[in-house]
Structure formats: structure tokens, C-alpha cells
Amino acid sequence: MASQGTKRSYEQMETDGERQNATEIRASVGKMIDGIGRFYIQMCTELKLSDYEGRLIQNSLTIERMVLSAFDERRNKYLEEHPSAGKDPKKTGGPIYKRVDRKWMRELVLYDKEEIRRIWRQANNGDDATAGLTHMMIWHSNLNDTTYQRTRALVRTGMDPRMCSLMQGSTLPRRSGAAGAAVKGVGTMVMELIRMIKRGINDRNFWRGENGRKTRSAYERMCNILKGKFQTAAQRAMMDQVRESRNPGNAEIEDLIFLARSALILRGSVAHKSCLPACVYGPAVASGYDFEKEGYSLVGIDPFKLLQNSQVYSLIRPNENPAHKSQLVWMACNSAAFEDLRVLSFIRGTKVSPRGKLSTRGVQIASNENMDAMESSTLELRSRYWAIRTRSGGNTNQQRASAGQISVQPAFSVQRNLPFDKPTIMAAFTGNTEGRTSDMRAEIIRMMEGAKPEEMSFQGRGVFELSDERAANPIVPSFDMSNEGSYFFGDNAEEYDN
């Protein structure tokens, strides 16, 4: 993207840094990872977990959730003011799984939030270390993106479920800051804005008074975040219109849905970061690795190297396929839920299948599930090659597409044709070009129609051997075009429920 120079890199967003050079960025990201790792080690000690239990991804998720809940100030305040039966607002906890007599047992633990905050700050040299908290939120978000298709949420806001490739980060909490905003897809931002506008339509006082002023500035800020994701002048001009509207209503909703559809071809720039579970960072720190000293990046080879040398386990339900569970977590670790499966298959070195073909449910185990038949197995999170994460949407291309997802959002900077089903997408653009945004709409449609099938995206960008740390010898991959490109292809993934 041309304006790259004016933006802070995501590592800076990730670490609240002012302008830093590459070495400083690597050190501050490393410091953040160190903090998460030290916190995780301490929690495993508190909970008396064995090494194996500490490497269980379900335990990692519970521990991450506990610290996120302990620092969720708004919710904590709300819980104190609106006490609900049987919930102690000062405590947080969740299921911890232990191996007892050759069987997995679930144990519900409860801790004072104050105590968890103390352990977290102690692991982070006394700081609140917001960057580390956001990092864990993005890992949870990436896992949700890989596990669930947001059909219901899309339909509720009037969008087409086939636009799911635009929904990265749709389950990120509001408090995820600049680093969170960077990884949100165009569809996620559109959905947040539509929800806001709908509230304004239904509630006369939404934009009024002292609160209304705050609401208005939040609305304009979200519009600017979305505008910054678009790469064409016409899309940005249309966002200006939406932002400046005196009284946002149905016309703005129409414009936003139009823009979301246009992003299936004229893709937005959305950041991709490899955020790993805390149970990967903990053992690495415990083994003596100093992330701050060595430096770390979320968008280069580092996460690949770390996963190459990590042992992570997962509980497996009786009829689940461990290899499929591994694929789910591998995609989440690489922030690749909406990437082209052919690119992923090449990088991973084994075939990556669409969601609907995987015999696996989510990673988390519900409290009512029976533990008797639970097994555990090693997650295979290694890769054959590594590639640089991208934040450009890439230019655009036609490809055989599917009944489910009709476009992709690249996660890796790797040369390819970008699949999208042009006739299906263009069919949504018939007729409606009147109104105050008509010239911009016409211009956007013209650009979409001009998108050429034979153009290559990320020209000359390749993948790298894991021994090639400096990215000196790019390998331009070859793809098996007979395979499906979309992950949520004609899909039956479970729906995400809060």
C-alpha cells in the first residue's frame, strides 16, 4: 500500500510504541512475548500442572481467558453494579484439565481477579502490559475465525453469508486497541457500523446529549479505520460520505453494504499476525530463551520457528480426527482463516481442507461434555516452508469459486491468482447506482469489472525454506488448481455463540 510509510507498523501498534527502528520493534515485541511466557509459567505453578498438562491447549485457553477477564475493567465495573446470582464479580476462573488415573478430569478453578492481575503485572515488570493482553485477544479471535462461520451475524446486519472472507476479527472485544483495529476485516468494521446506525434509528437519543457526542466521535473513528483499509480513492470518498452524514440511517447502511461487497474484489488491507497460545510461549521462556534479547516478529519467520520446536497437546472428542484438529489450530496460529487453501497447503506441506470436510468441533470443551471418553493427542503445528504475512489485500483475480465463501483475504505475501467468483459478486451490483453516491458507485463498479483474471497478485513473492531466515531465496510455489480455494466452501461450520 502506498501510504505504508505514514502508518505505524503493526509491531508498533502491538507494543504501543512511538516510531521505533526494526531492532527496537523486535525487542519490544519480544518483551511482550516474554511477559506472556513468564505469566503462563507462574500460572502453571499456581495450578500445580504437570509439564504435559501445561502444554494442553484447553488449559492455555482457560488461563488466557482468566487474565483477560481480570483486566476487563468495563465488564468488571458492570458486574459490580449489576450483581447477578451466583456470579462473584471479583473472581474469575474456568475449567482446568488434569490427568488422573490414566483419565482426563475437569476441575473448575476460581481465583481472585486481583490475584491474577498481581501475577500478570509481576510477570511483566510491574506494568499492565496491555500489548500482551491484546495479543491474547487476537489469538482467540484468530481461533474463532478458523472455527466458526459468522453466517447468522452477517444475515442479521443485512449482509450476504458468502462475504465471510471479510469477517476477520469479528469476535475481537471493543477494547483491543490499535492492534485489534489493524486485524479487523472490512466486513467486521461494516458490521460494527451498521449495528451502531441501527441503534440510532431505533433509539432517538442515541446521537443526542453528552453521551451522543461520545457516540458520534466513536462512529467517526470507526469510519476512519474502515476508510484506511480501502485502497481505492472511490471507496475512500464513499467512506467520507458515510462519516460526514448528519443523521446516519438506511442510506448509510446501503452504502456500507455496497462497500463491503466491493471489497470482495477491490480488497481492503487487513493486517495478519501470528499470535500463538500462551502454552507455546511459556515452555520456550522456561527453556531459557530470551525473546527480548533475541527479538521477535509476528509477521516473519519467528512464529514458524517457534511452532517448529513446540509440543502442544489437545483434548480430542471420541469421533474427532486429531489431524483435522491440528489443521484448525495451525490455521489459527498463522492467522489464515480466509487465505486461499492452495497457498496454505503449499506452505504447510500437507493438504489443507475446507472447514466442512474437517471432523472436528471447536477447541474448547463445553462444561456439560462427558470427560470419560476424552483422549488427548499432539497437535501437528509444523510447516514445510515459511512466508511473510501481508497486510495488503493483493490485486484481484477471477477463479472458480464456491457456493460458500466467494473470495479470499490473503494472509501471506505469496504470488498467486486470487480466487473470487466474479459473476456471483457482480450480480449483486445491478441497477442500484442512484442517489448521492452514484458517481462513486459507478466508478467502483467500473474498477471491479476491469479486474483481470490473468493478473498475478504479489508478483514474484515466494515462500522460503525454514533454514532461509533472511528470506534470501524465494520459492514461487505451484498450486494444484483442481483443489478448492475457499475454506468455508459450501460450508456447515458451527455458528459462533458468545
Score class of each variant (00 low, 15 high):
452 K>W: 05
445 I>Q: 06
301 I>Y: 04
106 R>I: 07
200 G>A: 01
373 A>P: 13
324 H>E: 10
217 S>P: 14
492 N>S: 06
48 K>E: 12
145 D>F: 10
172 L>C: 06
180 G>H: 03
367 S>N: 00
198 K>V: 08
328 L>M: 02
89 P>V: 00
435 G>R: 09
135 H>R: 09
244 E>V: 08
168 Q>D: 04
28 S>W: 07
87 K>W: 12
409 Q>R: 07
476 V>I: 12
257 I>L: 07
253 I>E: 10
339 E>K: 14
239 M>P: 06
45 T>C: 01
186 V>G: 15
56 L>W: 06
76 N>I: 02
25 I>C: 09
356 G>V: 03
171 T>C: 04
318 P>K: 00
354 P>S: 13
365 I>C: 12
366 A>L: 04
130 T>A: 04
159 M>L: 15
96 I>D: 10
435 G>N: 11
478 S>P: 14
177 G>L: 08
402 S>G: 00
492 N>T: 02
218 A>M: 09
304 F>V: 13
264 L>S: 03
496 Y>H: 14
345 S>K: 07
6 T>Q: 08
45 T>M: 09
403 A>F: 06
252 E>K: 08
284 A>N: 09
247 N>A: 01
334 N>S: 14
358 L>W: 08
490 G>T: 13
131 A>T: 07
198 K>H: 08
333 C>L: 08
117 R>D: 07
166 L>Q: 12
382 R>T: 02
56 L>C: 00
199 R>V: 09
341 L>V: 13
456 M>W: 14
484 E>R: 04
309 N>K: 01
410 P>E: 08
119 I>C: 04
399 Q>E: 14
106 R>W: 08
410 P>V: 09
10 Y>L: 00
195 R>I: 08
328 L>H: 04
149 Q>T: 06
143 L>T: 05
312 V>H: 14
13 M>R: 12
301 I>S: 06
5 G>D: 13
436 R>I: 02
331 M>R: 03
369 E>I: 07
265 I>D: 12
181 A>K: 07
270 V>P: 10
115 E>V: 14
361 R>C: 08
76 N>Q: 04
442 A>Q: 01
220 E>Q: 08
404 G>M: 13
301 I>E: 03
370 N>V: 15
340 D>E: 15
406 I>M: 07
497 D>C: 08
114 E>C: 00
471 A>I: 10
333 C>G: 05
258 F>H: 10
268 G>R: 09
387 A>F: 13
401 A>R: 15
326 S>M: 11
393 G>P: 02
355 R>V: 10
165 S>V: 10
350 T>H: 00
221 R>H: 12
125 N>I: 13
80 E>L: 00
428 A>C: 08
380 E>Y: 10
381 L>C: 10
254 E>N: 12
261 R>F: 12
216 R>Y: 10
457 S>E: 09
34 D>N: 05
277 P>C: 13
54 G>S: 15
269 S>H: 10
398 Q>V: 15
474 P>T: 05
352 V>P: 15
209 G>M: 11
54 G>N: 15
129 A>Q: 03
346 F>N: 04
203 D>P: 13
338 F>P: 12
480 D>V: 06
315 L>H: 03
475 I>D: 09
238 M>F: 06
44 C>V: 00
378 T>A: 06
471 A>T: 04
416 R>P: 08
152 R>F: 08
365 I>F: 15
399 Q>G: 15
419 P>Q: 05
173 P>K: 12
8 R>S: 11
71 F>Y: 08
25 I>T: 03
10 Y>D: 00
257 I>A: 04
410 P>D: 10
162 R>P: 04
81 E>Y: 00
414 V>C: 06
287 S>Y: 10
172 L>S: 15
160 D>Y: 04
54 G>F: 07
234 A>R: 01
215 T>M: 12
161 P>V: 01
496 Y>V: 13
247 N>Y: 07
424 T>E: 04
423 P>A: 05
182 A>W: 15
309 N>M: 00
421 D>C: 15
471 A>H: 10
213 R>P: 01
10 Y>P: 05
152 R>L: 04
266 L>F: 15
199 R>Q: 01
18 E>F: 02
265 I>Q: 08
397 N>S: 05
282 G>W: 08
375 E>N: 10
89 P>N: 03
230 F>T: 06
200 G>Y: 10
237 A>W: 14
175 R>I: 13
421 D>Y: 05
304 F>G: 02
180 G>E: 10
92 T>V: 08
163 M>T: 08
261 R>D: 12
367 S>W: 06
95 P>D: 09
117 R>E: 06
497 D>R: 14
410 P>Y: 08
195 R>E: 10
275 C>Y: 08
358 L>V: 14
40 Y>W: 12
276 L>H: 12
48 K>F: 05
33 I>T: 03
127 D>E: 02
63 I>A: 01
228 G>D: 10
436 R>P: 10
171 T>S: 03
18 E>G: 13
169 G>R: 06
135 H>L: 14
175 R>V: 14
213 R>E: 07
127 D>N: 05
106 R>Y: 10
3 S>K: 00
41 I>R: 01
459 Q>S: 00
282 G>R: 05
24 E>P: 06
64 E>I: 00
127 D>M: 09
462 G>C: 05
432 N>M: 00
188 T>S: 07
245 S>F: 08
300 G>M: 11
443 E>F: 10
181 A>I: 09
166 L>G: 14
167 M>K: 14
97 Y>D: 02
265 I>G: 05
61 L>A: 15
265 I>V: 15
450 G>C: 05
